[in-house]
Nucleic acid binder design. Structure first.
Length: 255
DNA sequence: ATGGCTACAGCATGTAGA
């Protein structure tokens, strides 16, 4: 069973990248972030041809947007977090599939909109923590995958890539991320690669060539799923293709 | 630390991304 996450920075610009990734890695479930379009605008044809079904949560205006693409039966059980403001932000999708729940998230960046924008990020993380706490308390096998917009530690970004005031590395963001781990979630990539320099995002320009990146896309697993964790890796292939997203996928394999 | 990228809305630049 392979679970994957990929911030595509516009699915309309990246349908080919996603289709090639699906064909090569054949994940059972793939979560997308920053689809940047409405549900009707998601180009699903290439995915259907590969045997995949798509469900999207989108919004008008070219911002945010998440989706799930799977080749096993699944049911969408949530399209927002309990308590989410009625602001129309498309940032959450949760499915029930293969005896587990899996959520795809596009966590607010928190750098725009001043301190109010940062507060929105932290509040969003607190709501996510409530959902994770519920799934853990009820022993629901649960995976959270997506663009967390948090570098968990200083080992998760190239030295000097961000100022210490950036919302991706601020202590409050990191504390909220750690709170998810303290609930019992496992950072799958870091658990299997404790000392490796691993990035999932490189800014456009020369950052990929010079490997000046960030690790901000994560796979968190509840105890039931962490026990089944077999492999977790960053797939840099899509980032090396022409007209890439600035992110690249992370894939976890469960027994 | 941004914007030297990129995408989007919409048609000129402004906003957002991280």
């Amino acid at each position: 069973m392979k679970l994957a996450t990929f911030n595509v920075n516009s699915i309309r610009q990246r349908a080919g990248h996603v289709a090639r990734f699906l064909g090569r890695m054949r994940p059972e479930i793939l979560f997308l972030q920053e689809t940047r379009c409405t549900e009707e605008q998601v180009p699903v044809g290439e995915f259907e041809a590969l045997g995949y079904t798509t469900r999207a949560v989108g919004q008008a205006g070219g911002r945010n947007g998440v989706a799930v693409i799977a080749n096993i039966p699944f049911e969408v059980v949530a399209t927002d977090l309990p308590g989410d403001a009625e602001d129309g932000h498309a940032r959450y999708i949760e499915v029930h599939a293969a005896g587990m729940n899996a959520a795809g998230i596009y966590l607010p960046n928190g750098n725009s909109g001043g301190e109010a924008g940062f507060a929105y990020k932290i509040a969003w993380m607190e709501r996510l923590r409530s959902v994770v706490a519920d799934r853990v308390d009820t022993f629901t096998p649960f995976a959270v995958l997506g663009d967390f917009n948090v570098c968990p530690t200083d080992a998760d970004l190239a030295p000097g890539a961000l100022p210490p005031t950036d919302a991706l590395v601020r202590p409050e963001s990191r504390a909220q991320y750690r709170a998810l781990l303290h609930l019992g979630m496992t950072d799958a990539l870091r658990a299997l690669h404790p000392a490796e320099t691993l990035f999932t995002y490189w800014d456009y320009g020369a950052a990929f060539e010079t490997n000046r990146g960030l690790r901000i896309d994560h796979v968190l697993l509840s105890p039931e799923l962490a026990e089944r964790l077999e492999a977790c890796d960053v797939d840099t292939m899509p980032r090396s293709e022409m007209q890439p997203s600035d992110h690249t996928p992370v894939i976890a394999t469960l027994r």
